[in-house]
Amino acid sequence: MTLDGRVAALSGDSRWVSGGAARILVHHWRDQFDAIAVGSGTVLADDPELTTRGLPAGRHPRPVIFDRRGRIPGTARALRPGAVIITGPDTDARHLEREDLHLLRAGDLSQALSGLGELGITSLLLEGGATLAGALLAAELIDEVRVFVAPRLLGAGLSPLAAPAPTHMSQAQNLTDVTFAPVGADVLMQGLLHAVPQFSRPSLTAASFKGA
């Protein structure tokens, strides 16, 4: 994100917030996780592949798409064999019923993550968007945060989180074991939200919100 906390301009344009070195590192992270998660809004806006195409020998993580209302089209590029689509219990998602896809119905986020664990997914890299990230953060279901801060200012723009706003600073969720490292022209800030990572909870990275 930018130095003033934006991941895209008001128009939605975000190419690119952070530099090439940061984007390459994100592909290395993808290679290390069982699955990579995005919300339906990200799929509708960007139609991402969610692969490690930046690494010649990279292992593509399993795509996980949170689509409570069944909005994404069956032609989305992320719907490669093995992809998981998480919908509501009564959502009409017949257009997503394919033998090579897994349709997981869940009543809430905790149930969704438990369902992913039953599918053998024990590490989940969350890349966006703001609504899904905000919901998981508010539910205290994120263990680790990784944020690239780019040396640029945007002013008005889109935030990486859409979540209920606390009325007091004392209500903020604080990171622990925080580290900082330069990555190209950007700075990577990394820290934990929980002392001991819990099984099937996602690791949140702000590194590639809207391609940041």
Rank of each mutant, 00 (worst) to 15 (best):
H168G: 06
T167L: 15
N174G: 13
L158C: 02
A162H: 10
M169E: 10
A138C: 12
T131K: 05
V178N: 02
Q171C: 00
T167G: 14
R146G: 02
T131A: 05
D143C: 09
S123M: 12
L141A: 11
L124Y: 01
A172V: 05
G129D: 03
L158M: 08
L161N: 02
G129N: 05
G134F: 04
D143V: 11
N174C: 09
A138T: 14
E140D: 14
L154W: 06
S170P: 03
V145T: 07
G128F: 06
S159D: 14
Q171I: 04
G128Y: 04
A150D: 00
I142F: 01
S159P: 07
R146C: 05
Q173K: 11
A165Q: 13
R152D: 02
G134W: 06
P160Y: 02
A133R: 04
A163F: 15
P164C: 06
P151W: 10
A156S: 03
L136S: 10
L125Q: 04
E140C: 06
L137I: 15
R146H: 04
L153W: 08
L175G: 00
P160G: 01
L126E: 08
E140L: 08
T179A: 10
E144Y: 10
P151L: 11
S170A: 11
N174V: 14
A135P: 07
A135Y: 02
R152I: 07
I121G: 00
I142A: 12
A165M: 14
L154T: 02
L125A: 06
L137Y: 13
L141H: 07
L137N: 13
A156T: 05
S159V: 08
T179P: 06
S123H: 12
S159T: 14
S123C: 12
Q171R: 06
A135E: 09
S123Y: 01
A133E: 01
P151E: 11
V178C: 00
G157P: 01
L161Q: 03
V145N: 11
T122Q: 15
L154H: 02
V149S: 08
A165W: 09
L126H: 09
P166L: 08
T176N: 00
L141G: 07
